[in-house]
Design a binder for these strands. Structure first.
Length: 316
DNA sequence: AACCCTCACAACCGCATCAAC
DNA sequence: GGTTGATGCGGTTGTGAGGGT
């Protein structure tokens, strides 16, 4: 393994960060900002490469980092986004404020991947989304060129690219559904900034109805996404209720008797019923097999760096 | 107690992209 | 247009903790 050009300097330290190094980096960045990362090590008095400093800051020292277990809503969001964008962790992370791509990637690789399977594929845990059966309504084929930025869709077989062929218009055309909502507080559906931009004029949005009524869930066609009548605020900018309210963590939710805090297999059941091949199915059997609902809890960092978070200047 | 195994997560590496020259 | 350096991203590895034998 080689080193980066920025790391070719002598005396570049590697490995876990010490609390002292964290302190130096925090002190420098809070005072001066990071500006050019390649200059940060020298100016901060660190024997690290700029890249390492950047990574440490972004993935750990940043004041807005959110730690702790992923909420069920976050988990669902990760799964649904992954079904749409694949391993674009930074993209996924942009939808989960306070979470880093690295954290999500680790979480996916260590946990979610074990619990999901693709519909009609047994217990496969492939992390690669497949959309081979996805069909796009012909009325929406006008802007397929814009799909080139949307890789999973762009790579799919556009089985209905003939604008005169109406055979696969709603509701039979499977397409990645992209949202759900529960009274636990998640409100997400339309991403004005990224997803919609990715697919051009396609309004790849759907809403899983808000009142927890299963009938309402079923009443909504996932392809109502193409009808711009279900607008929700932009995912990131407007998302103020990401994650469950205090005490509402899946089955541990104290208020579970008073509202419809979702079950983990709710999405899977619905998706499976709809036979949408672009979705992952929550494998309840696998989940039971590997430990049920005991989601992993993010533990404090090993390298003593927990103090760095606690001591981060509150003025930021 | 010692060893082995598994797991989570921090960190590194290589590559792609972009901007400046 | 080519080169170079900085940055961002995804894949992968290394490390340490914890559990099992």
């Amino acid at each position: 393994m080689g080193h980066h050009s920025c790391c070719n300097q002598q005396k570049v330290k590697r490995g876990l960060w010490s609390p002292e190094e964290d302190e130096k980096l925090i002190k420098y960045i809070t005072t001066h900002g990071y500006g050019c990362w390649s200059e940060v090590p020298d100016k901060a008095g660190l024997q690290r490469c700029g890249k390492s400093c950047r990574l440490r800051w972004i993935n750990y020292l940043r004041p807005d980092i959110r730690r702790g277990r992923f909420s069920p809503e976050e988990e669902k969001l990760i799964i649904s986004l992954h079904a749409v964008v694949g391993n674009r962790w930074a993209h996924i992370a942009s939808h989960l404020p306070g979470r880093t791509d690295n954290e999500i990637k680790n979480y996916w690789n260590s946990w979610i991947k074990k619990k999901i399977r693709k519909p009609n594929t047994g217990t496969s845990t492939s992390s690669i989304p497949q959309y081979s059966n996805i069909q796009i309504p012909p009325t929406l084929t006008q802007d397929f060129n814009s799909l080139t930025q949307f890789e999973p869709l762009a790579n799919q077989t556009m089985t209905n690219s003939n604008p005169n062929d109406n055979s696969s218009i709603f509701p039979s055309s499977p397409i990645p559904l992209f949202m759900f909502e529960s009274e636990c507080g998640v409100t997400m559906a339309k991403d004005d900034h990224e997803l919609v931009a990715d697919v051009g004029n396609l309004n790849l949005v759907d809403i899983w109805n808000t009142n927890g009524n299963q009938n309402d869930h079923q009443a909504l066609s996932p392809l109502s996404s193409f009808v711009d009548h279900n607008y929700l605020p932009p995912l990131v900018d407007g998302m103020v209720t990401m994650g469950p309210p205090p005490g509402c963590i899946g089955e541990d939710c104290e208020a579970s008797g008073s509202h419809d805090c979702f079950e983990k297999n709710e999405l899977s059941e619905w998706v499976e019923a709809q036979q949408y091949p672009g979705f992952y199915i929550w494998d309840q059997g696998l989940q039971d097999q590997i430990g049920g609902d005991d989601l992993p809890v993010s533990t404090p960092p090993k390298s003593n760096t927990d103090t760095s978070v606690d001591t981060f200047p509150s003025s930021l």
